[in-house]
């Protein structure tokens, strides 16, 4: 399982590709890609979003589902998806518990 992630151009916020080429801030709302064709199509949408000046540097990441929640497989991406582990009140993690 994969999702596409990037940073938003205007403020650098970590975003994920959501349904129909949208860009969402929480990984739980990301569109999960099952096979190579889907990934290729999603990356093509990512390239369009780069050209449209919405995002920068889109790439695919592995995700896993734990207790019905989607999360990145790699530790680095877990931190990107949540915020700094040293500042639980900052980043996306703060919103989720709010």
């Amino acid at each position: 399982m994969k999702v596409i992630t990037a940073n938003r151009l205007i403020d650098g916020e970590v975003v994920f590709q959501g349904p129909e080429g949208t860009w969402v801030e929480l990984i739980g709302e990301a569109r999960v890609l099952a096979d190579k064709d889907e990934i290729a199509a999603a990356l093509a949408l990512g390239a369009q979003a780069v050209a449209a000046r919405l995002i920068v540097e889109p790439y695919e990441i592995d995700v896993i589902e734990t207790d019905g929640r989607l999360e990145p497989a790699r530790f680095r991406e877990k931190i990107r998806a949540a915020g700094p582990t040293t500042h639980p009140a900052l980043g996306k993690q703060a919103r989720e518990t709010a």
């Binding site: 940073n7 403020d11 650098g12 916020e13 970590v14 540097e57 680095r76 990107r80 915020g83 700094p84």
Partner: peptide, 9 residues
């Protein structure tokens, strides 16, 4: 001096 890091610029 403006970098793009994990969470933001």
């Amino acid at each position: 001096g403006l970098y793009l890091q994990l969470h933001a610029y």
